[in-house]
Design a protein around this nucleic acid. Structure first.
Lengths: 348, 348
DNA sequence: TTGTTTCACTCAAGCGCTTTAGCGATCACC
DNA sequence: GGTGATCGCTAAAGCGCTTGAGTGAAACAA
């Protein structure tokens, strides 16, 4: 019979106190850098703690008024939409980098829809599980800011527009309007006059910002063959919309896809329909990833640093938790990486 | 000045006790389905709790001996390798589905390497943060099972082979050997004699299982032009290896890629080199995803249900937490979906 | 000398929950 | 009508930590 190793016991502050010959309070003061102990005692206590491999029990900490040392992240996407999206993993990876430094945990949950997401926030709050949350995919007419206000849960909205109605929320956002204007500028300069924007989910705030900007840019230039079509971000809808618009009497000469997956599906569909990219139709992907360099022609794409986006958001949240003021910070404008899928417009 | 809403207060059992006119203990008994209260009192307490929107504080629960109601998941991948991998998000989504039912949280962390991963387990354990963990990417000669044994942390290894040396760990695994054998069978039947397997990370247990099986199958059939090459799973290495093997004097007629991303990169590379898929070279991707249907030719792929994989793993872990015995369960054999990238071998 | 401060530390309560021991009331039994 | 169970409930301790209120000794001022 194999020797049953007795599971290790978690050392507590009491153990440290005993070994260091002081009271538990002294240990607490010493380890938290609070005044009330001499430097020599503090050192001794620290050494003992280290030696014992002590780590504060988050449960106990949380219970005695400190935070839960955890922040929450909810992704409201139907399971099948989750597939190939590099953005979120990169975002999370950036978030982690910042949180890990401060030994903050990330509680992660995938839910079906916005209602479930709100329920999760309520539950997390009631269960005392998180000190704050990161909110993604802000919507037009979003119920979450109000809810988080009500719960008093510190939060950073990722990708939202500045929001004066919720002074408690921090916002980290990308200038979608500016980016869209730049893309349109570029395409216009290449001679494109008929442009279709295959957008993402219609309810998302940034989708609307892009759509509005595109319309404005078109009006400014007197273009009529410009439109946005919303989708669910899936390759299937991307392909379907591509098929439809390219099959129209006056097909667009340029397509802007709101993510890399749809852009890829779009290029494949265009090829099937006998359109050559970029000779017949130019394609821009709103999101750069390995995918864009994995098919020929390489896709021209708007590149933003999603990892840094995550880091920024996490930093804002920790600042908020430290009692700092809510802020609105803008991340750098995405850069358009011109590869092979964009070129001069050619009348067919 | 806007009315500053006072942040909501978390209701506690004491509140319930007061409103229901019983002691806190009675409330505890009532809400946890324990004997010691009459049915009528239990109902009343339940109603009051519901009405107050009460939820148990996980901190307090954890402190008084119950678990932390949280399970941990560490992904040890360098940030830049995270990109386009549909597998993990799907896995996590399956895990969540099961955990959410039981109101278990998922603490998620991305780290650089195995050593960091072990450190995270130690910290989580010491901080009393998780009741159990899900371990992915098991390696040959993996330090994690020993560590988890030592900590007495319940765990399920995802993708590992059955491991008799760690009777405390559950294992959920896919039969890579069987799948590889089936793939080779299929390719052999199509006339392929020179096959290269562009494998994933060499240190991973399933990579080795696939490599060993391929070698065994080749030997069994007396094939000499069969080999495995390990990579880091990136499109870059996938492309590089493809370039190298297709440039050799006697290039393979079939390529097996250990993930979808490399397969895609491989197809693109083959095309650049003047190889037509599948006429000149057949391609199989070990992992089916939207990607496989996003380029022409559509990729033949081994399809497994990653979401269900996650569900199964999570179920095993909850069973373990409930005091059940450690088990080894095998998920269904991946199916080979034949699309357009595989065909009869042709000598060049 | 005595009174006042400061310093280094200890005591004890409390966070929200579980759980064991115990208590009075009801009920069954012979 | 007394004995013992059983039932429905309460009291209190304890989980590991923080924190405000002490406390005794040394340092200083009057």
């Amino acid at each position: 019979m194999p020797a049953k190793r007795s599971p290790a016991r978690r050392p507590t502050m009491k153990d440290i106190a005993r070994r260091a010959g002081v009271s538990e309070s002294a240990v607490s003061f010493a380890l938290n850098g609070r005044p009330g102990v001499s430097e020599v005692t503090r050192d001794r206590v620290r050494r003992v703690a280290e030696q014992l491999g002590w780590r504060p029990s988050t449960a106990a900490r949380a219970l005695s008024g400190e935070g839960a040392a955890t922040i929450g992240f909810v992704l409201a996407r139907p399971a099948d939409t989750l597939g190939v999206d590099s953005f979120f993993l990169q975002l999370v990876s950036g978030i982690q980098e910042v949180l890990a430094e401060r030994h903050l945990g990330l509680l992660f949950q995938v839910v079906e829809d916005l209602a479930d997401e709100c329920a999760v926030y309520r539950r997390w709050w009631a269960e005392h599980r998180v000190d704050g949350v990161l909110v993604v995919d802000p919507r037009t007419d979003d119920p979450r800011p109000d809810l988080l206000d009500e719960l008093g849960l510190p939060a950073v909205v990722i990708g939202g527009a500045p929001d004066e109605r919720h002074p408690g929320l921090s916002t980290v956002w990308a200038d979608d309007a500016g980016a869209m204007a730049a893309v349109v500028d570029g395409l216009y300069a290449l001679g494109h006059r008929r442009i279709v924007h295959i957008a993402g989910l219609s309810g998302l705030a940034h989708t609307q910002r892009r759509i509005r900007t595109l319309r404005a840019e078109a009006e400014r230039r007197g273009l009529t063959g410009v439109e946005s079509v919303t989708t669910d971000y899936s390759d299937a809808e991307g392909a379907a919309v591509t098929r439809r618009v390219l099959g129209s009497p006056a097909p667009p000469t340029a397509l802007i896809y709101d993510n890399d997956v749809m852009a890829l599906a779009g290029v494949a569909t265009a090829a099937e329909l006998g359109f050559t990219v970029p000779a017949d139709v130019s394609v821009v992907a709103w999101e750069d990833s390995a995918l864009c360099r994995m098919v020929r022609p390489w896709l021209s794409a708007l590149s933003r640093d999603s990892v840094e986006f995550g880091r920024t958001a996490a930093r804002e949240l920790t600042a908020l938790l430290d009692g700092g003021p809510a802020r609105t910070v803008r991340v750098p404008l995405p850069r358009l990486i011109e590869r092979e899928s964009t070129g001069a417009a050619r009348e067919r």
